[in-house]
Design a protein around this nucleic acid. Structure first.
Ligand SMILES: [Mn+2]
Ligand SMILES: [Mn+2]
Ligand SMILES: [Mn+2]
Ligand SMILES: [Mn+2]
Lengths: 218, 218
DNA sequence: ATACATTTTTAGACTTCTCTAAAAATCATT
DNA sequence: AATGATTTTTAGAGAAGTCTAAAAATGTAT
């Protein structure tokens, strides 16, 4: 029971979209993410449901079953391993690797993935800081670092805070930052150590006072 | 105007089947090679013809156009480069690489192929001795070696002979060996230096007297 | 040249994935 | 609770690739 490229991409993106909310992923969100139409999503989601890879009830959105999740995580594993290879060994730039990895992630060979993993030295993080699950689908324990000290270019997520005043908490809330929020660190000013992050396609400025009080995944 | 995996496989196999005869490739030969039905071949060949990738006239078989040939050669290039990678760097065994390369050859990124080629050190031959065309589609000048001295496991082809008696010529003809015939060297006896080759799925024994008088591509 | 065998093509149908347009359900606002 | 906006689903159709069965063309052997 092998999956098509298309099915695999659906599963992967359902996985990524589910992480940000406990509800099912909406048809529209998925359609936008996959650059397709809502009606196509409905069709595919029904098929995945018939294959027991997702839980789906009309109008209620979609979530992954255990089996669907395993596949999704394995695609992510392959994607990130290939990105390590492309960047570390073939010398690709950070931006260029993604599209190629998007294709390579669908090459289906356990043998290939295990050997690639070994060749790369069993990396735990891809070049953007994304954690790489092992062959059993287990993600590495994320290391924590202050946002103030994180490398530029990393995609990361909020792991905790070191300041608990109401003022700080409501400030974070207004910025759209909470535990688990994922973003990318884009810039850090030499002048005042303020940082620029990318969150949901929007660019946001954070002062050093904010950055030094947030723990993020490394 | 990108090609699908399926179209690429058709082009590659038309290329390989045309090398052994100056006539067009027959529908049936292609169907057998691609493990599909003759009717499917007819359909696809019409489509490739509409795209100007093959020359096709009903009942006359099919040949590649210049453009079709370029694509075919590029697929072969990618296939063989990936086989070098899989075998030399990931430690795959000789038999295992082919199926994976069959998929990897369709990943479409000039950048990827050029960087992989560089990473591998611009190899001219794959691990089976298959010549790897360069980025312009030019195959390396094949080195010549006596069959007597060729490495076991190599796929190769007849490049010339060093004995021109009628007896030898008719012996070769009976064995099915002529200039350009492709085969794989399987075994060499320590006892009498006779060799065993695989030609068109059949295994054939050649005495040392024969092997030492045949030049093959290295 | 005729008959028979083989190869190739056509006709029609099926699967997978996609789309547009319209209908149905849900959500949001008063 | 009613209205209107938004989201989601359905209905119907199209492109790509495949198949089976039947028709047409070609090849072969007397
Ligand atoms: Mn990526
Ligand atoms: Mn993908
Ligand atoms: Mn091969
Ligand atoms: Mn292939």
């Amino acid at each position: 029971m092998a999956q098509s490229f298309t099915e695999e991409n659906y599963l992967k993106h359902i996985y990524k979209l589910s992480k940000n909310s406990d509800k099912g992923v909406s048809t529209n969100a998925l359609a936008e993410r996959l650059e397709t139409k809502a009606s196509s999503v409905t069709d595919m989601v029904k098929k995945l449901s018939a294959k027991k890879l997702v839980n789906y009830q009309k109008y209620q959105g979609v979530t992954l079953t255990k089996k669907g999740q395993q596949i999704a995580v394995d695609i992510i594993r392959k994607h990130r391993l290939w990105e390590v290879f492309l960047q570390k060994h073939l010398g690709f730039g950070g931006e260029e690797v993604h599209d190629v990895a998007e294709e390579l992630e669908h090459i289906n060979s356990t043998e290939l993935v295990e050997r690639l993993d070994k060749f790369l030295g069993y990396p735990k993080y891809d070049p953007h800081g994304g954690p790489i699950p092992d062959s059993k689908g287990v993600f590495p324990e994320p290391k924590r670092v202050k946002l103030d000290e994180l490398e530029l270019g990393r995609s990361t997520k909020v792991m905790g805070i070191t300041e608990h005043s109401d003022a700080f908490l409501s400030h974070l809330k207004k910025l759209g930052l909470e535990l688990g929020t994922e973003f990318i660190l884009k810039e850090r000013s030499d002048f005042d150590r303020s940082v620029e992050i990318e969150l949901n396609e929007k660019t946001i400025q954070l002062s050093h006072d904010v950055a030094k009080n947030i723990f993020v995944a490394y």
